[in-house]
Amino acid sequence: MVDKSIIGREYPEFTFEVEKGKIKEFARAIGDKNPLYYDEKAAKEAGFEGLVLPPSFPTVFAMAGGLMEVMLGDLKLDLSKILHGGQQYEYFKPIKPGDTVTGKVRIANAFEKAGKAGTMDFIVMETTYTNQNGERVLVDTSTMIQRR
């Protein structure tokens, strides 16, 4: 049974510095040739301050910031039984190369749900990111599903 007492649990903050090389590497991996991800000049001409981040790039913050460690360690999840059920981003301010974002993870919900494959445990993690100026830039809501 899913442990409801984890709801509201918070984890120590982590930081991530956004680098140009990582943006290009990510854009290549997803097969996107959009010049705004590779060419600073094109990005500036299009009205951006620097290279642009693809919409799902913030997964890089989460992975680097230890979301996996949180799940595997503290929540004792089994890699062979977990699935990424859903992912949401809410964008408040642009994030650009050179920014350092600080993420704070909180367990927003934990519940079980019966489905075709039997009852599964759902854990919803919410990560709020602020930039180096203390501005809230992004909220990441990630739902993990554990098969029993």
């Binding site: 990424h84 859903g86 992912q87 981003y89 809410e90 964008y91």
Partner: peptide, 9 residues
């Protein structure tokens, strides 16, 4: 343009 973006797998 994007303000929110979410998916279920």
């Amino acid at each position: 343009a994007l303000k929110k973006f979410g998916v279920s797998f």
